[in-house]
Simulated scan of single mutants.
Amino acid sequence: MITRRRRGPFVAVLAAATALALGACTSSSDIENTAASASAGPSALVVDTSPDQDRIHTPKNQAAIDLLPPGVVDDGVLKVATSAYSAPLAFYADDNATVIGSDPDTAQLIADALGLKLEIVPTAWENWPLATQSGDVDVTISNVTVTEERKQLFDFSSYRVDTLGFLAAADSTIRIKKPEDVAGLRIAVGSGTNQEKILLEWDKENQAKGLEPVDVQYYQNDSDTTLALQSGRIDLTFGPNATAAYKAATKPDDFTVVGQFNGGWPDTAEIAVATAKGNGLAPAITEALNGAIADGSYEKVLKRWGLTSESIEKSETNPPGLKTS
C-alpha cells in the first residue's frame, strides 16, 4: 500500500510505485519483462508544485555551443514551446501561471548547456508544429513522439523513451503483461492516438484467436475519463505512462498502473525535442543533452519527476521514427 505524506500546500507527494522504478528500458520487451518481474516495494518522492522552482542545472557545454548555427538563436534566448496540460510532463504550478514539469526542466538543461537564457512559451498542442516551423519558438519540448512523417518537417533530438501505461482503479486485480490480457475489458483511449492504434491492433489479433473483443470507449476530456474509471464504468485507461503513473502516485487510494508498453510496440519509439527541419539546431541540442546525460543532471531531472523508467543512455539526432501508415 502506498501512503501519502503531506508537506504543505505547495507540495504534492509523488509515491513512485513499482511501475515508476523499472530502470532504463530501451525496448518494448525490456519494459514488459521488467514490469512483470519487478518486486521492489514503492518509494516516495516529494514534488514541489510551487512557482518557485529550484531547477536542476548543467554547466555550459562548449562542444554544443560550437554547433549552434549562426543566425538561428542570436538573441541569447532559447524560446521553447510546451503544452502545459499534463503532470508531470508540463503543467501549471500552484499560481496557475508558471509552467513546471519534466519538459520545462529538460528545456532548462538544454538552455544551460548552450549558454542561453530560457523562455518557456505555453503553446496548445495543436499549435506547436506551426510555432516551430514559423520561428515563433526555437524548439518544442512537449512529449513529442518521433514519427517518420514528422521527420519530413522537423529535426529531432531524443530525450526519453516513449512509454504507454494502463491505469486502473486502486483495487483492480487486472494486470496487463501481454496483448491477450486486454480481451473483454472496457478500455478508454484517446481518439487518433498511437495508443488507440496499438489497442485496436491487439483487439483485432485477439478476436482472430477467438478471444473476447475489447469494449473501446472514448471520452471528451481527461476529467470525464477519470470519473468513468472511478465510477467503474470502464476497467482501464490506456495513455502516456508518465501521466498515468503520476495519477497513481499522487492518488494511490484511487489509482494504480497495471501495465507498461513501449509507445512503438512492438518496436521502440522515442520522445524528442523538435526543431524546424534543416535549421541546424538539432545537432547542438543533441550534444547538449548528451552532456547532461554524462554529468548526471539529466538523470536528476527524471528522478525528480518519477520518470527514470523512461531514461535513455544517449540522445540521437533524428532517430528512427514510427511509421504512421
Rank of each mutant, 00 (worst) to 15 (best):
T324C: 00
D54F: 07
A269T: 06
A294T: 10
L229N: 10
F238P: 03
G280P: 05
P70I: 09
G135Q: 13
S86Q: 11
V189H: 05
A84E: 11
S297N: 07
E287K: 11
V99R: 01
D224Y: 10
V144K: 07
P70L: 09
V182F: 03
S311K: 06
I271Y: 05
L68S: 05
S86L: 10
L185Y: 05
L199I: 05
E310N: 11
W305P: 00
K251L: 11
A242I: 03
S158M: 02
Y92A: 08
A35E: 09
E180R: 10
L153K: 11
V13G: 13
G71E: 10
D203C: 00
V13I: 01
G115D: 06
A244N: 08
D295K: 12
G263W: 04
A87S: 13
G259H: 07
L118T: 03
A131K: 14
N206E: 11
D254P: 02
E180V: 11
F255R: 02
Y92D: 07
L307F: 12
Y219H: 14
D136W: 04
A131C: 08
E299R: 11
V146F: 07
D267K: 15
K303A: 15
S191R: 15
T145R: 14
F91C: 08
K177G: 14
G76W: 06
D181F: 00
T268M: 03
D267V: 10
R233L: 12
P319H: 06
G192T: 08
T226F: 03
G232T: 07
P88M: 07
K79H: 11
A272W: 03
V11G: 00
N127K: 14
A276Y: 02
A15H: 10
A35G: 15
G321Q: 01
G210L: 04
V216Y: 01
T49D: 09
V189D: 06
A36K: 10
L281Y: 07
V13H: 15
N221T: 11
A87K: 13
V72H: 03
R4K: 13
P320T: 06
A269F: 09
Q53N: 08
A272Y: 04
I312L: 14
D103Y: 11
K303P: 00
W202S: 09
T243H: 05
G165Q: 02
T140L: 01
I285P: 00
V214Y: 00
N206D: 13
A40G: 14
N290W: 08
Q230K: 12
N206I: 11
P179H: 02
I65D: 11
I141K: 06
D253F: 02
G192A: 08
S43R: 15
R304C: 01
T132A: 09
F238Q: 10
P213C: 14
A245C: 13
T34N: 14
R6H: 12
V13K: 07
